[in-house]
Design a protein around this nucleic acid. Structure first.
Lengths: 213, 213
DNA sequence: ATATATTGGATAGCGATACTATCCAATGTC
DNA sequence: GACATTGGATAGTATCGCTATCCAATATAT
């Protein structure tokens, strides 16, 4: 198919398709001449994926990174999985600081307390360390009990996700893991806020019942 | 103190302080003349809060709303709390509610399945709906069992957080809730990714042991 | 074969957001 | 009285994620 059809199929306007081509989010079509190229189903699928990621609020460089990981997974599934998730750019902190050989003391302590294995080069280690630092600066304490309870629940979530992972092909597993990691994050954040509201609401009712029993 | 000192104490550049004054994020100082005003500790604290919220990616109008709720919490702490958290989502840009369509079907179904009460005007509802839609578009399924298990763990996290909340003054509670909601989000995201990596790593080891027992 | 439409490629523009910089005149301080 | 500071206003900058325009080469239709 040609661009016009790709535009029709994907529902993405032509200038935007061109933009995604420029940004390397959509692989170029097979060039059949100086002013013509042919596109296939993979282009339609890719555009749908880009659309999904973009509408999930991911900045373009991050989408590019995710796509690269989906396109080039390694040999071993679990290894590639760890690498892929490890290389995922952090959702927060769009600007990555220069990679000094920082020790990430807070994050290391936390992870070790949870008895987890980890790769110190993992982006999430830096992310966690920075987040914990911000927590301290804001005067919010993360106690060991908090940390452990957090770890338990979050690990529970992660277990569900890994359990759901397709075991057939490595590429599928990576795709699932990367997409899941990125796209589930807003889901979790939203559900957490709604849980806050629900709990707050129910405590409000309780205190009102105490006022007028 | 005067502006110069406020700038020094807060670490926020003068033009930005002026900008925050213009935007109503920082209350004006006590005017002691046509070209002079006096600022106090509350201004330093307020600037710190604004900085924390802004660096978390909150748009200025939402910061203004949150500050208004902190300043005028009304009589009910939990109500104000719910409203304040409702202002929070930095995940997506505020998209027009699309008044004609059925509002947030995916999110409503999910929340009702969890048996939670919720305010449909809560931004997190929109956020959740959009995230679930993105999930569908990316071809990742959220089963009911998944949802329920998720809900359980996330609720557990939220319970911990609400439990830690200071119960003394309403302003303190809101401040804690808002900061906690925003600042804990990266912590949770990072811990989840690290848990993924840990689980993947351990399964990799297990499969290697099976190969060479 | 010629008229018309489409395409790729390049470049420029736009609207929103969050600052940042400059200017000025009144004023405060030494 | 000299000089720096301040408040207030206005304008400029940088980034992001698109959009729009232009052009010349080439399909395609007639």
């Amino acid at each position: 198919m040609r661009v016009s059809e790709l535009v029709a199929r994907s529902g993405i306007p032509l200038p935007t398709v061109k933009y995604y081509l420029r940004e390397g989010l959509l692989m170029p079509g097979e060039s059949t001449g100086a002013t013509q190229a042919r596109y296939g189903e993979e282009h339609v699928r890719r555009l749908g994926l880009v659309k999904a990621l973009a509408s999930a609020g991911l900045p373009i460089p991050r989408i590019r990174e995710v796509l690269r990981l989906i396109d080039h997974p390694g040999d071993s599934m679990f290894e590639a999985l760890g690498q892929a998730i490890g290389q995922l750019p952090p959702y927060f902190d769009p600007v990555e600081p220069a990679a000094d050989e920082e020790p990430f003391p807070r994050a290391r302590a936390a992870i070790e307390k949870l008895g987890q294995v980890y790769d110190p080069r993992h982006t999430a280690v830096r992310q966690l360390d920075r987040a914990l630092e911000a927590l301290e600066e804001a005067g919010v304490r993360m106690t060991d009990e908090n940390l452990e309870a957090y770890g338990k629940h979050i690990r529970g979530i992660a277990e569900i996700e890994i359990g759901q992972m397709p075991t057939g092909s490595t590429a599928d597993a990576i795709r699932y893991a990367v997409l899941g990691t990125v796209i589930y994050e807003p889901v979790i954040a939203a559900m957490r806020r709604l849980a806050h509201q629900d709990i707050a609401q129910k405590r409000l009712q309780d205190s009102e019942e105490q006022d007028k029993p």
